[in-house]
């Protein structure tokens, strides 16, 4: 564990909590892409199946349970509890255009052709593009609530911090995982446009 990975995980946790609280407190998921949240739930489910097979640390297990719990709670709030406030017309990105190519790539490019490893690779690739429906929705509506921009900021920051974590681990531990690094770079690059607007605008954003 290093400072970049710890702050990265905490930034990720902050993003997840911010979104969940925003929907819960305002009792509305206006401006939120339910499809991105479904993809994130899928990312956590396919990545954290190792909860059933291996124990790494209390921190690791606790965070995985929290991530999965919050992801499904968010999907539940969007599609069940506050379904009336879900803006389905603007949340029109075709998820299959992401899941199918990512699934194929995970079968072609991976560290080991085993069930859990393929699923892990799928989740890494999927996470790098899972935010696209949300960014697409904001570009269609032309605006985003301030709280949503904070959610996106911390979500984008988390993987950027992981890039520093991988530099740290390569330098100090000789560890590197090309699949995670390349996907992490793609994921962070997708936020660059948003980061620029977030920093220059400060308040509500129009992509």
């Amino acid at each position: 564990m290093n400072i970049f990975r710890l702050t990265g995980d905490l930034s990720h946790l902050a993003a997840i909590i911010i979104l969940l609280l925003k929907i819960w407190k305002t009792r509305s998921c206006a401006g939120i892409s339910g499809k991105s949240q479904i993809l994130f739930a899928l990312v956590f489910t396919t990545r954290y199946l190792d909860l059933l097979t291996s124990f790494i640390s209390l921190y690791n297990t606790t965070m995985k349970v929290i991530y999965i719990g919050c992801a499904y709670a968010t999907v539940y709030l969007i599609y069940m509890k506050f379904k009336a406030t879900y803006d389905g017309n603007h949340d029109s990105f075709r998820m299959e255009f992401l899941v199918v190519p990512v699934g194929g790539l995970a079968c072609l490019v991976n560290h080991d052709f085993s069930f859990l490893e393929i699923l892990w690779t799928f989740s890494i690739y999927l996470e790098s593009v899972a935010i696209l429906p949300q960014l697409f929705m904001i570009s269609k509506t032309g605006e985003a609530e301030t709280i949503t921009t904070h959610y996106l900021f911390f979500l984008g920051l988390y993987r950027a911090l992981y890039l520093f974590n991988w530099i740290w681990r390569f330098y100090f531990e000789g560890f590197f995982d090309m699949i995670a690094i390349v996907a992490g770079m793609v994921q962070t690059i997708l936020y660059c446009d948003f980061f620029y607007l977030y920093v220059t605008k400060g308040q509500g954003i129009s992509l």
């Binding site: 990975r5 995980d9 990720h12 190792d50 097979t53 291996s54 790494i56 690791n60 965070m63 995985k64 991530y67 560290h111 859990l116 892990w120 992981y162 974590n165 590197f176 995982d177 699949i179 995670a180």
Partner: peptide, 10 residues
């Protein structure tokens, strides 16, 4: 390279 069994990152 990715040598230990499984992945230790979230």
């Amino acid at each position: 390279n990715q040598d230990e069994v499984g992945h230790d990152e979230l």
